[in-house]
Design a protein around this nucleic acid. Structure first.
Lengths: 309, 309
DNA sequence: TACCCGTACAACATTTCGTTGTGGCTCGCT
DNA sequence: AGCGAGCCACAACGAAATGTTGTACGGGTA
């Protein structure tokens, strides 16, 4: 591909060969092989060079695109020059929205959004940051969480919860609900088991408001969950407010804000203080510009104190 | 790349090897080479297979994208299965807009928009259609134009002209102008020389309204032209209405509609009747749904009768 | 502890790839 | 018209790569 593009740009094989530091014959051979593989003539050879055929013209932009993608693929992992790699717990939460917005604001900055395998507790994520395999991660950082030297955390997101219900649910037409009203109602959050700080959060939430959260059943994927909730008259689930920007509205589901108090899930950015990646500072600046309001009244946040459970 | 993706999907080299019809050792070698080239470990080898590292996870989507692009590149020219290839005279005219819209309406249909070299008259374009190197082209087809058997034409576009002027031009603030008002004004259309039916059109236009069209000077590119017009108090040029959807508004240029009569440039789609490409019919259906109004009053169209000049 | 499964390493055969050498074609100059 | 310059294709050879078979190593598991 590189040879094809070089030859197309140069208009002749000889010059392309020079640019690639190989012989003209090698270029000729490469192009011939490509033409044989594609079963199409790409150049018309003349005495004064080689001009693209129609097929060649049609192929050229694809070839360039391929080289661009290859370049980006390489840049995404080559140590020392790779894209900024940020971990999010999952792609339907506030950090993902934030990263999308950041990308819109700075399209030139290469980003890689990864999701560490599901058994990653804060500790595992912090270890990954420390090891340098990821540049940053968004996590809830309980006060008692041990943070090694050289690792910094910054509380940059307050994600508030909404109740997601189907049209037949008692709260389907409510403008808002208070956590106290949820007492006795079933809240279904499959897959919410054994996940470190996340379960700690919901344990504390349950204890604080007398909620009933079911975690039964395996996770068959998001569509199944939404389907069941849409059909049910008593199932509900909690989702982050940001997910409204990430889901299609295809199901007949209602999002009911939760008020008095609002249920906040706090998240911090975690990164290595000595990470020299230039994009990291830009990302932190961006987060700074959207920092959540200082906690005010009407808001519930976890204490993350095990004794509260 | 294919091997990497296969191994990532399979979770083990052995199975990937089977899928690729090579030995496990070959897969191992390929992955090892890739890792060496990238200077990054992509898999952690375990006794029960190979799992992606963080780096591998970050790389995977890029690898998939590369394969997709390669697939599309191949599809764009492989005879018998290639994308629908449509020629437009240049990428700033109505056909280009139409193709964009069509692509939005049918994102699944692969399109290749090409531009035949500039010396291509209708005859050359028709020959290209006949030879099958392009599936269709948009051209003005004068009534006297010879069209071979098996080639069909359909008048699907009426592009109306607008006058493009800088802020100091006398018409800069006009809501509209009539062709008669343009008598004596300089209209600059560099590059408009020796272009077959296109020049015929403007020749007839000049004769009909006593216009003065300058074609002096080489074409240095669009930016230069726009620059000069923006700066000049008496230069103007004619552009198609559709170009408003294709140009940025970065220059301080005014588009003045031309009325009484509107100046129409008619264009037809030209294709081979026996072209079996499935996308061709869909494209024609689409064009049908946007067919221009039957010519009504207040419109000027060329007769393309040489004697009129 | 003995296997089973999966990966890595080694040696060898085969294919691919790049180089040098050469011929043929076309354009432009004399 | 003849000749030289410039460019591409084909042939032959050596080097590098790639794939295969054979084998060793290591971690789960019965």
């Amino acid at each position: 591909m590189r040879t094809f593009v070089a030859a197309a740009d140069a208009g002749q094989f000889q010059e392309a060969a020079a640019a690639l530091s190989i012989t003209q014959q090698a270029v000729s051979k490469r192009i011939a092989t490509l033409e044989k593989d594609l079963e199409v003539r790409l150049f018309t050879r003349t005495a004064r060079g080689a001009r693209l055929t129609i097929d060649g013209q049609a192929f050229l932009p694809h070839a360039r695109e391929l080289l661009r993608v290859a370049e980006r693929a390489d840049a995404s992992i080559r140590p020392g020059r790779r894209a900024l790699r940020v971990d999010v717990v999952n792609r339907r939460t506030a950090p993902a929205v934030l990263l999308q917005d950041f990308h819109r604001a700075h399209p030139d900055i290469e980003l890689d959004v990864v999701t560490l395998s599901l058994d990653a507790y804060v500790d595992a994520a912090i270890a990954a940051v420390e090891a340098g395999t990821i540049d940053a991660t968004f996590r809830a950082v309980p006060p008692r969480q041990h943070v090694p030297d050289g690792i910094r955390t910054d509380h940059v997101i307050n994600e508030s919860h909404e109740l997601l219900v189907g049209p037949r649910h008692p709260f389907a037409n409510a403008r808002a609900v208070a956590p106290a009203q949820l007492t006795g109602h079933r809240i279904w959050m499959p897959g919410l088991d054994d996940r470190g700080e996340v379960t700690d959060y919901y344990d504390e939430l349950v204890a604080a408001f007398g909620l009933r959260i079911d975690v039964v059943g395996p996770v068959f994927g998001n569509e199944t969950l939404l389907d069941e909730i849409a059909d049910s008259a008593d199932l509900a689930t909690l989702v982050g407010e940001s997910s409204r920007y990430l889901w299609p509205d295809s199901y007949d589901l209602r999002r009911i804000p939760i008020r008095n108090p609002t249920l906040i899930y706090p998240m911090s950015l975690i990164w290595r203080d000595d990470n020299p990646h230039p994009a990291l500072n830009k990302f932190r600046d961006y987060l700074d510009s959207r920092r959540p309001d200082p906690t005010d009244a009407g808001v519930w946040m976890p204490t993350w104190d095990r004794r509260a459970v």
